[in-house]
Design a protein around this nucleic acid. Structure first.
Lengths: 257, 257
DNA sequence: CTCCGGGTATCGTATGACTTTATCGCAGAC
DNA sequence: GTCTGCGATAAAGTCATACGATACCCGGAG
């Protein structure tokens, strides 16, 4: 999956060697291949999987440590951490999740998060938005309407639309949730791809949210955002169920260049 | 500040050398001493501040990279990242924040997050709680009532109360927000310390939330949680304003062993 | 003044040795 | 037979060094 392309630039460079190692280990952990047991011994991994120096390996482990995926203890070894320790809202962890384990429960949970957070954010945005915020949201919306559904610029616009609303909320900690929402959105757009009707239905919803924000009507913006999220969840789940009947398509989704 | 003691175990070991370096750099960045410019050159830091090998330094940088605090670009240098790139919901980043820059705006933002998230979480908890969840919440509440206000076990109980409600929500991504809420709570408890009246007032609120969850009354739990958060914000801000009039007390808070 | 090319600084990677720490097991004492 | 404690041991942590790659700076040539 190269969905990541659309998201905000991830801090950890996938070109570099340690980034690749980190990703490989992360996916192995998240997918359950490693599951809370001791990691492959340093030496073994070095020699067996791919020839990589201890330096690169250790830096990869440090990254995973920082994101809560592993716990390194001096004598007992470096073990995969239990899931409740993962930093599930981290952009990279989410991206790795989607490469490893796109199960329905996780998507439901993420949508639940969206359903709780995004309406409140929309309310704040309506109360605090500046002219610049409006312009940014409008530009994103135009990108959605002026391009074919599910085309790259259109998807980019959809993501930018939601991100711009987060930005307009003027709340830094809240904005950190934008990356989680965007990751959810990306995934759902990949799943829904081809359902042009669902996309067309969502366009006026987006527009109406913008209008409410322009009017500084926080309550209305929140209500409309709630509707949008719920609709999105429903169409996404419908697509998931369709996809789950076609393992071929799942494979295609997971390995799209 | 050693507030961290009460929170869930941070993944990055502060005993280790790289952990100390990471913390030192992080605080320097968050406090604004470094502010989006190039980091101190590798060599300089190595020799000047404290004798530390390149390995430890690099691993510290990797941790900060993983948390979005710095961006290392192949040849142009390692720079402090702009604030919107920071992972503000990360437990460590929050802890570092409170050591570096306890400004009122940030506290307001975090309480805003609580105000949006915790009621929804309480609603979910009421709908999904198991008997074990109830027992856990009750135990936490008992720790609050059976110990003197603001004593360690009492504070621990307060944090555990909120964390247990998150756990009862059965939503993994949502539970990641618990650490942010707990960090906020810790900070506000430190600020409010001594205001026994505020504490006494909050006890029945906590109890009523538990009752609503026991009754599986989601709406009521949400409403009561909203009230609790708002009250907590008000008393905290009152304390902040008192403290801000006494720079001496601020210093004491920041350097409490 | 502009453009080009080489030097330099800095990150990334590799390697080997030594230190620290915590676990486990064995030996000795009660 | 059980408990205690000390040492062997294994793994992570730290250090020093070296080399490669490349973006950036600066100086010289046109």
């Amino acid at each position: 999956m190269r969905v990541r392309d659309f998201s905000r630039p991830t801090t950890l460079n996938p070109d570099r060697l340690f980034g690749q190692v980190a990703q490989k280990l992360a996916v192995a952990i998240i997918s359950g291949d490693i599951g809370a047991g001791a990691l492959l011994p340093n030496e073994d991994d070095l020699r067996a999987d791919i020839s990589v120096s201890r330096t690169a390996y250790r830096e990869a482990v440090k990254i995973l440590t920082a994101k809560g995926l592993v716990e390194a203890r001096p004598k007992s070894g470096t073990r995969a951490a239990p899931r409740e320790r993962w930093n599930l809202l981290d952009t990279d962890v989410l991206a790795w999740h989607f490469e490893a384990d796109p199960n329905e429960k996780f998507i439901r949970d993420l949508f639940e998060l969206r359903r709780f957070v995004e309406p409140s954010v929309a309310r704040l945005a309506a109360q605090r938005r500046t002219a610049a915020d409006i312009a940014r949201i409008e530009a994103a919306l135009r990108a959605m309407t002026d391009n074919p559904p599910y085309s790259d610029p259109c998807v980019r616009g959809d993501l930018a639309f939601h991100e711009a609303i987060f930005a307009a909320s003027q709340n830094a900690p809240l904005q950190c949730l934008a990356s989680a929402v965007i990751a959810t959105l990306q995934w759902s757009l990949v799943l829904k791809k081809g359902d042009d009707e669902a996309f067309a239905d969502s366009l006026p919803d987006h527009e109406n949210i913008l209008l409410a924000i322009i009017d500084r009507d926080g309550d209305l913006a929140a209500v409309r955002m709630t509707g949008l999220v719920i609709d999105s969840l429903n169409t996404t789940l419908a697509s998931v169920n369709v996809v789950q009947g076609e393992p071929d398509k799942i494979a295609r989704i997971n390995h799209t260049k």
